[in-house]
Design a protein around this nucleic acid. Sequence first.
DNA 1: AACGAGACCTGGCAGC
DNA 2: TGCTGCCAGGTCTCGT
Length: 280
Amino acid sequence: MPELPEVEVVRLQLEQHLIQKPTQPEAARLHSVQFFRPDLRFPIPQKQIQNLVGKSLAGLSRHGKYLIFEFEGKKVISHLGMTGTWRFVEPSEPRKTHDHVIFGFQVRHKKKLICYNDPRRFGFLDYADTQKESQFLAKLGLDALLSSQKKKQLFLQIQNKEAAIKNLLLDQSFLAGVGNIYASEALFLSRIHPTTPANQVSRQKWDRLCNEIPKLLQTSIELGGSSIDDFHGVDEKSGSYQDRFWVYDRENESCKVCRKPIEFLKMGQRSTYYCARCQK
DNA sequence: AACGAGACCTGGCAGC
DNA sequence: TGCTGCCAGGTCTCGT
């Protein structure tokens, strides 16, 4: 579910409520943590996270699809997997199925609780400090939302890659943040056929792709992300980018540019959608 | 080294 | 109604 735009929407919403700014002169402090199971996809580093109680939340950042809570030099890293969500909850509120973790923050005199829910438990939490960087963050490539200039320099690297361009876009160690939906969408907008070997993408098309990716992601962020089935922001509102999909999940519907039916293909066991006339 | 397949989970839906 | 099988936004691990 959550690709870069969905994670960024969550980050912006949490930031609005929890991070110090002129209208909120005091930083939120971690007040309590509750774990309802010892593991998600991986064991939760419960002890290290528990030790952060009392520390102030200095910032919330994001790299690719990873959300990073920054506590005085220490970090809690959250990945939402396919079905993970963070939402604000009330202390009295009954727990829902698959609520796994609750962080309580003290923001001036108020308490704010955020709850991590994840039916499939493909998501996970990690901990990092100055002694030990997160193994997950260490592997990531450039953030896909960054200026296109830096990404254009990756053109040299793709000269060695025979993998299909769509599979390369999904490789988080190459470019961090693009997932299965936005890979199909970005290739459509750049007129590149998804099976094209990366080293056969022209300089011109590559530059175009580098320009389209951040534009596409930014547009989606502004619309609150894409909500399929269960994604929602921390306020439980759904995003609406799914209403604008050019090709994703539109097999046999007509291309919005040339009217030819959108085609479907499995690539690396992932659904892939494209227009055979527009994408060469 | 690079790539692909399988694994990890649950829930929703189509088809019978 | 209820069972079965298939599908899903991700990514780690293992085999070739």
